[in-house]
Simulated assay, not measured.
Amino acid sequence: MQLKKYTDYALRVLIFTGMKKDGELASIKEISETYHISQHHLGKIVYQLNKLELLETIRGRNGGIRLAKPANEINVGLVVRVLENDFHLLECFDKGTDHCVISPACTLKHVLNKALNAFFKVLEEYTLKDLIRNEEELLELMGMEK
């Protein structure tokens, strides 16, 4: 199973903003420089995270972004489910394009569906707060001070 870069980057944005303290704002530029990701691409991600009410964006000269809710209320599994819109692991997962002759009797799709559900079950056990428990180490790796 592989997540899209978009989802990876969105989780990184949430981790970055989740480590800010007391309503401190982050900037797309700061995140871009830290992770070496295009500001333009991050802008699209921040826009969607704002629409999902996970980030709050503040306009203006002293503007920036911050979490819209506490890190312990942001469920990793739910974020991934929303951002990943295609979990058709095999052709038979997509009813409209299933041309496999054994599909009606095949149990592989059921096995993979069970595995996919287990994948999400594990992700849903974690919140953003769980992802930033090792904050000091993360800050050091990002070249930031506490």
Results as ranks from 00 to 15, higher is better:
Lys4Thr: 10
Leu11Thr: 04
Val13Tyr: 03
Val13Gly: 00
Val13Trp: 04
Val13Met: 03
Leu14Cys: 01
Ile15Pro: 02
Phe16Thr: 01
Thr17Pro: 02
Gly18Arg: 02
Gly18His: 02
Lys20Phe: 09
Asp22Leu: 09
Glu24Leu: 08
Leu25Asp: 03
Leu25Gln: 09
Ser27Arg: 11
Glu30Ala: 12
Ser32Met: 11
Thr34Glu: 09
His36Pro: 00
His41Thr: 15
Leu42Lys: 07
Tyr47Lys: 15
Leu49Asn: 06
Leu49Tyr: 07
Leu49Arg: 06
Lys51Cys: 10
Leu52Met: 14
Leu52Ala: 08
Glu53Arg: 13
Glu53Phe: 12
Leu54Tyr: 02
Leu55Arg: 06
Leu55Ser: 08
Glu56Tyr: 00
Arg59Thr: 04
Gly60Thr: 08
Gly63Met: 02
Ile65Tyr: 11
Arg66His: 02
Leu67Met: 07
Ala68Pro: 05
Ala71Ile: 07
Asn72Cys: 06
Asn72Pro: 06
Glu73Tyr: 12
Glu73Asn: 14
Glu73Arg: 11
Asn75Ser: 06
Val76Thr: 09
Leu78Asn: 15
Val79Asp: 01
Val82Tyr: 05
Leu83Arg: 03
Asn85Ala: 11
Asp86Ile: 09
Asp86Gly: 08
Phe87Pro: 08
Phe87Asp: 13
Leu89Val: 14
Leu90Val: 14
Glu91Met: 15
Asp94Asn: 15
His99Val: 15
Cys100Ala: 14
Thr107Leu: 13
Thr107Trp: 00
Thr107Tyr: 11
Thr107Asp: 14
Leu108Tyr: 07
Lys109Phe: 11
Val111His: 00
Leu112Ser: 04
Asn113Thr: 15
Ala115Trp: 00
Ala115Leu: 13
Leu116Trp: 09
Ala118Pro: 00
Glu124Ser: 15
Leu128Ala: 12
Lys129His: 03
Ile132Pro: 12
Ile132Ser: 10
Glu135Arg: 10
Glu135Gln: 01
Glu135Cys: 00
Leu138Ile: 04
Leu138His: 02
Leu139Phe: 07
Leu139Asp: 06
Met142Gly: 04
Met142Ile: 01
Lys146Tyr: 02
